[in-house]
Design a protein around this nucleic acid. Structure first.
Lengths: 212, 212
DNA sequence: TTGTCAGACTTACGGCCGTTAGCTTATGGA
DNA sequence: TCCATAAGCTAACGGCCGTAAGTCTGACAA
């Protein structure tokens, strides 16, 4: 994670050849605004510039428009999520069931820890109808593929080891499981107080993974 | 459902004592903008007024601020959803399993038919942090209670008839089932092309209702 | 030491927003 | 017929937005 930008003193200009550093600072500023504000509408081009301590037009050498700042944020956080999930699985030992629960709980924890990020990652409204922005369809389609593949793999291992009743369609089962996780994660991220029992996450996992 | 407002001719003023009619026209205009635009940001106070064929300040006698227009839209659509679900259950006959599937599929159909409405109803970002708006917490808490109660009832009937493996916590089971439905409905409403098999909805219902 | 140019900045334009203050008009009871 | 008033309008303010055009400045090769 990149540290938040809080200093108000005039920013020190980057050295020659290091202009690209500002790109990361812009992303970090956008992320900070998102986490604090709890509203993606607060992440405007100008507010990002203010937060990063630069003038608004200074963003243009690094990003074509405001939506592409958001895309960069989402891409970065998708990678971060995939990394977190991978680490959780690796640290869970060899047991397939434990690996599945570690993966799913890490997913839910990420959403609980960063609700605003989760919202824009999986339900975000940061592209004003994709047209008239610089964002392509390919940009959007590839998002989150790594994390999902990992889920399918771990679930597949459970089926192979006989821990879970697998259907003939592993991909479909993985999608269903992810949708359940997403429903919980998203609702938690959106609502102020989530109703229901505390172990609703475990219930979803057990039911949707068809654990024996 | 209220018909969309499309005429551009100067609007006929309402008769005396019928000023309240404009309130419904405003809600209808906001709904139309939402359905078309696919972006709640397009539903501004001014754009709603334009769509309704009135001047922007003419909204204020009927709504305190822009968020409360959205709240009225959401409340209306929550009622509409509850009605649709109730009708689906009533038309499904006496079989508890058929009633449950009718309910769940009606829910998913609503979301598929009106993705933008679904989004603001269950994940909406139409209150800029609730503070400094005229919206109270009570307004938000009561939303969707009717529809959920119906789901819990129909699921409970399945358990009573021995169709489903009920746990000791019917409420929790209903929440879990709803979260699964919501995950699918929301993702369909947000993403352009939903991956996964076509029957993923049925899979979610069967698994989360613990149908035998 | 000096000149160049990457890495920023200042200024400005037009647009849409929410909201306030005060005005017009047509409806319908007297 | 008249006129009180409900219903809705016009004008305007301040604010924030995205973006274009042109300007400054300091790090570094020569």
């Amino acid at each position: 994670m990149v540290t938040a930008v809080t200093n108000t003193e005039p920013r020190r200009r980057n050295r020659r050849g290091e202009g690209g550093k500002l790109r990361d600072e812009i992303i970090a500023a956008a992320l900070a605004l998102l986490d604090e504000g709890g509203d993606e509408r607060a992440v405007t081009l100008r507010s990002v510039a203010r937060r990063a301590g630069i003038a608004a037009p200074s963003i243009y050498p690094h990003f074509a428009d405001q939506p592409s700042i958001m895309l960069a944020v989402v891409q970065q956080e998708m990678d971060a999520l995939a990394t977190v999930l991978r680490e959780a699985v690796d640290n869970a030992g060899p047991d397939a069931r434990a690996r599945l629960f570690a993966l799913c709980n890490a997913y839910l924890d990420f959403a609980k820890l960063h609700p605003q990020r989760y919202r824009i990652m999986f339900g975000g409204l940061w592209t004003p109808s994709v047209e008239d922005t610089s964002i392509t369809d390919a940009d959007l389609d590839s998002l989150g593929a790594g994390a999902f593949t990992l889920l399918a793999d771990v679930l597949g291992a459970c089926v192979e080891e006989g821990i879970a009743h697998g259907s003939d369609d592993l991909f479909g089962d993985a999608v269903a499981l992810w949708l359940g996780l997403h429903g919980l994660a998203h609702q938690r991220a959106v609502v102020r107080k989530m109703p229901g029992p505390a172990d609703v996450g475990d219930r979803l996992i057990r039911a949707l993974a068809h654990l024996k």
